[in-house]
Design a protein around this nucleic acid. Sequence first.
DNA 1: CGCGACCGTCGAACCGGTTCGATGAATCAG
DNA 2: CTGATTCATCGAACCGGTTCGACGGTCGCG
Lengths: 340, 340
Amino acid sequence: MATIGDVAREAGVSRSTASYALSGKRPISEEVRRRVLAAAEALAYTPNAGARALATAQTKVLGLLAQFHEDEFAPAMLQYILGVTNTARDLGYDTLLVTEADGVRALRRITDSRMVDGVVLMNIAQDDARLPILRAAPQPGALVGLPGDCAGLDVFDLDFEEAGRVMVDHLHRLGHRELILISQPEHVVERGGAYVWRLRDAALERARQLGLTLHAVYGESRQPAVGRLLNDLLDAYPAATGLLINNEAVAAALPSVAHERGLRVPEDLSVIGRYSADFAATFSLPYSHIESAPDRLGSMAVRQLVRRVESTAARKEPFVVRFISPELTDRGSTAPPHSR
Amino acid sequence: MATIGDVAREAGVSRSTASYALSGKRPISEEVRRRVLAAAEALAYTPNAGARALATAQTKVLGLLAQFHEDEFAPAMLQYILGVTNTARDLGYDTLLVTEADGVRALRRITDSRMVDGVVLMNIAQDDARLPILRAAPQPGALVGLPGDCAGLDVFDLDFEEAGRVMVDHLHRLGHRELILISQPEHVVERGGAYVWRLRDAALERARQLGLTLHAVYGESRQPAVGRLLNDLLDAYPAATGLLINNEAVAAALPSVAHERGLRVPEDLSVIGRYSADFAATFSLPYSHIESAPDRLGSMAVRQLVRRVESTAARKEPFVVRFISPELTDRGSTAPPHSR
DNA sequence: CGCGACCGTCGAACCGGTTCGATGAATCAG
DNA sequence: CTGATTCATCGAACCGGTTCGACGGTCGCG
């Protein structure tokens, strides 16, 4: 494998001249530049990533910490990941995907060893043990998800509180008086998944203000528990005419449950979910939903991260907490209520 | 950030001694070793990955090339990826996930620049343009999926031909005489997804031998096309009593279609799919299926890859092509035929 | 014609590890 | 007591890039 020394020799110049000819960081005569480029081409020269990282203190790699838990719906995570890797590549970076269970150790490893220029964290917990590490690290970091304390980090998330209110408002305007909200499984909350109760609490609060009844329950993540839960709930609250779903597995299971019960949407039951359009397509979900925009969030996080990585000025800017505002995609699964 | 020079100074020894004390590659007195370890601990020393890569010509990173196409079912891919990243980490490696559309360029980039010690390729095409690159690369490579020409590479795949035969045999033994096989969308085949016709051709051949009628069609990958297709097929072949599915999207869509048509499984229709247990759980699919074992395949590929990376002897061993034999998980979705 | 400015190129140092050969002290046998 | 052997440690070189300061040649100007 050719080194820059080989290129220099082939072109009859010094190593430094070859370097400058390739990088353009100093003026080089047209003649020499041509010779160097030709030599590089002929020898199929590619700079050694390790050597360059050592010399420049830049690896052109971003770290992506994502965790896959039994009780979370894996396909939903994938879209965030693709948002990150694709955007990173567009900006000239590769992505180190770390799915290790011990996130703290993983983060330490990749930051301390300088394998990455920056880190994107997913599955953010309210009191996330990785955040202190990331704040102390020399590399900038970006979060997809809102933690309790955002200090020192850029944060990107869906505005889950507003999402909860939008859902409730929408059904309230249609005349509904009793609703059910199914959240993620309780385990997710116990692990600190704050978005679950951010949406939930906001929805409850808004329902209270509007004088609505809102039954807020934690869901399941797997069959057959999901189906059972749905059936139990529909039985338990026969007067409920609207269903709000903040749980991908429940959303995915609803069509068949509704079918089995002979439940028509929206005639018998109005439904609003919170998931991405891509997810809806994959699982053919015919419900109106709040777009969770995972690819957009991943992309935004990477863009901001790269800005900070590449510019000292940007690194000094104040940290941002940016919420995507919930957009309701109307698929016609809501209507004025009729009692079931 | 502390370097090994800092550690050496703190411990009052030379850099080389510090290095040997930490690596244990030469005998070091107990006393000095203690001092060095204490210094490393005190300074929170972590070796610089770039420097180490430069010196040792090892990065402790594996590349994983995976592509996500519109017409393939993304959630199924995720399990291969997790099989790879988790096993890699167990063996001390991190994973560079590359989802770039231009796989050839991506592969060139990560191998030429020596970012990775080895590469796992997914989405293998019959005549995969990346293979010549990988064969010429200094790093070893492993494939998840069988290409036309396996020379110079380790290959891991489900035995799709045997899978096709197992499916047909199973329904034949139960007395079925007319079957439908739904494969992946034709686009997948056009891109060179050989596993599609390997299963298909083997199934057709076996059906011919057994005197069965087998309607082999290409499926769709998205709703609502998938549902329409299923309905059309069931209408077009009313005498078919068995359905073989080599297409995740179709499998995922079948429950609701069956339900809508009032079609009972297995009373009216026997069904066998080809997907993983994990996939079945995620999508709550109640069908007997051939296990595609994505995590196991990903894991096997990484283990073999790492063996070759770490041992010169292993690098000289002949290349392996290893097939996982199709296991039929009986979920009771097949029975002797009754005409619909 | 001589001086300073500018341009293009070179050599050397550096990034932070690893590794080889040499060195000096301690140990042992004769 | 000496010479060979062993052992722990050190210094230097190397991996393959980038970058800084210096240097020699050309040019324009006075």
